Amino acid sequence: MSVPALSPSLQRWLPLATVATLAVGATLVLHNVDPYAAGNPLPSCPLYALTGLYCPGCGSTRCLYSLVHFDLPGALAMNPLLVLSLPLLLLMLLNGAGIRPRLFDPLMRLLAKPMFWLIVLVGYAVLRNLPWAPFTGLAPG
């Protein structure tokens, strides 16, 4: 039995619609569940639990919780890279849906390179684990 092919317009908008649906669901959860509360049902970082090292995503749940509650300083304290990356991720999604303002072409070429993200994420993981200022400000909390 073969699966019918999706129309090109549906293929174009499906990733954006999927992310939008997940974002609404995450917003509803984070509006009602406090990740700062002891015993909350949200998962913690397995890498941190096993090694004591912060990964690039450590603090993301608390960061998003703070953003949902309009607490930008709290969000930046938990995961500044995520806060700075959210607009870039939105641009990438819109680009994938065919919305491509010429102004952002050079930026989109950079963001489309996996090596860029590898360097940013690995570099951020290393820097946020360094034990002296100003790098301690990158650690969650």
Rank of each mutant, 00 (worst) to 15 (best):
L89V: 08
P131H: 12
L88V: 02
M1S: 09
L88D: 00
A75V: 03
R128P: 01
H69C: 05
R128H: 13
L107D: 00
A37T: 10
R100K: 14
A38D: 14
L89W: 13
S60H: 05
S2V: 07
L118I: 15
L103F: 15
P46C: 06
R100I: 02
D71V: 03
C63F: 03
R128V: 04
R128I: 05
C63D: 01
G123E: 11
P41N: 10
G57N: 06
T51F: 01
T21S: 14
G74L: 03
G141L: 10
A77P: 02
G52A: 05
P35I: 09
P140C: 10
A17M: 12
V126C: 12
L111W: 01
F135L: 13
D105G: 05
P46Q: 07
F104V: 03
G141Y: 12
R102I: 02
A17T: 07
D34C: 09
T27P: 03
L14F: 13
S85A: 15
V29G: 06
L30K: 09
A20Y: 05
L127F: 15
D105Y: 11
W117C: 06
G98W: 02
P8R: 14
Y65M: 02
A112S: 15
Q11W: 11
R102N: 03
L91I: 03
G137S: 13
V83Y: 10
L16C: 01
L82W: 05
P134R: 13
L138M: 11
P46M: 06
L72A: 06
T21D: 01
L10T: 14
L84S: 11
L76W: 08
S7F: 10
R102C: 01
P87H: 06
P114W: 15
P106W: 04
V33N: 09
L138Y: 10
L64V: 09
S85P: 03
L121T: 11
G25L: 14
T61L: 14
T18E: 00
L47N: 03
C45I: 06
P101K: 07
A139W: 04
N129S: 11
T136E: 11
S7H: 15
A125D: 08
L16A: 05
A133H: 14
S2D: 05
T136I: 12
G98T: 03
P8L: 11
P87I: 03
L81S: 01
L53C: 06
V68H: 06
V3R: 15
R100V: 06
R100G: 02
I99F: 15
S2P: 12
P56R: 03
